[in-house]
Write a protein that binds this DNA or RNA. Structure first.
Lengths: 207, 207
DNA sequence: GTAATTAACTTTACACCGTTAAGTTCAAAA
DNA sequence: TTTTGAACTTAACGGTGTAAAGTTAATTAC
């Protein structure tokens, strides 16, 4: 009994080591630049060993994708204490952008990169708790805003998607380096300032 | 003299054929799935011939990237006739989303994918007319809005970036398949409807 | 008219990639 | 003590982008 436990523990340990190596490499070099072979080298195992723990490369990065959502939910947690839904919506927007700019590689994997979606397409879809949770935080906040008379007449779900889109756009353009058209002077804190404008626009909607 | 012309013409012809093959493959399979070898096979030349006309793979896709901006500017051209800048801003937003949804692969290359930016990083930056033109269309419209009393107190350039971001977010989430959290019922026309909400938000800001 | 040059193009090759199939090793179970 | 089976590796397949070297054929120079 104890012996099977130890083996199981060792298995989990190695899986953890793979994931840690993958995370480190991926955060400093990005998805494309992180190969199964370099991960293997880092943990001093042969490349094929990795396939005993993960179906394929996407499967590894899907695990990191999930990590990313857990981290994002940590950013969101503090905001549940904001009672007013409209204030909470604006706080979520700012936190979301902060998360993206502080964890660009995670953000990329979660919301831009195509690869982890392949893994998500399978059975994982159902048990994708963290993703649903993050979306739910926004979704319920938007619903409460509607209940309080904000955004009158708009479809709750489409509105939720739209709010998400607006902040996603800021993050995605920044992370994928599309801000070079912007003058040098405005490059600094561009994402943050764009976020502030979005929030200010929301404010002015209800003045 | 004529003989050199013919050679030059033939050179251009082949370059055009490479680009056409690349475009066709890329539109039906995307960037990652289009290899130098498949392009070469399509035009019935050896893969290395392509390198006589393009520095590297990014260079080819940078050419398509430019094509995409020309196409986007065509979407924008009709809108120059809209006299009122605020109306024009809203029309640009809708056209932008329409462009993205009608030409997802181009959009991906232009605003999401990392690859053509490598090529753009070099000397090309200066002569990137079409990109500057498209950004300029939005930029001047936003400036006129400010002059007409809209968006009071906001920085013109950061505001331009923010407007761009908002619509980009919609397009990017759609194109990279992040709409699966949305219920089936709202999937259809989601991008268009989100665009309408953004426009409606702009309207309500100034009621 | 013949030889030298040069541009266009191909062959070959390198160093990578993700992934699979076929071993190997060795501890646990029978 | 033999058998089983899990953990792990080696070798290999078919792909990628790209560089170097070799070939061919048309043009130029003499």
């Amino acid at each position: 009994m104890t012996i099977a436990n130890r083996k199981e523990r060792q298995r989990e340990e190695l899986k953890g080591k793979i994931l840690t190596a993958a995370r480190v490499l991926f955060i400093e070099r990005g998805y494309e630049e992180t190969s199964i072979r370099t991960i293997a080298e880092k943990i001093e195992y042969s490349p094929t060993t990795i396939y005993l723990h993960f179906k394929d490369k996407d499967d590894i990065f899907y695990a990191l994708h999930t990590e990313g959502f857990i981290l994002l939910n940590q950013y969101f947690r503090a905001l549940q204490s904001v009672a007013d839904p409209f204030e909470r919506l604006k706080a979520i927007s700012k936190s979301y952008i902060r998360f993206a700019l502080e964890n660009p590689e995670y953000y990329d994997l979660m919301f831009i990169s195509r690869s982890p979606m392949n893994a998500l397409a399978d059975e994982n879809r159902a048990k994708w708790e963290e993703g649903v949770k993050a979306f739910g935080a926004l979704s319920t906040t938007v619903a409460e805003c509607l209940a309080n008379g904000y955004f009158k007449g708009m479809d709750p779900e489409v509105l939720t998607f739209t709010c998400w889109s607006m902040v996603h756009g800021v993050c995605a353009l920044e992370i994928r380096g599309r801000c070079q058209v912007i003058s040098e002077a405005n490059q600094k804190d561009l994402g943050i300032r764009a976020g502030e404008i979005i929030v200010e626009m929301m404010n002015r909607m209800h003045k």
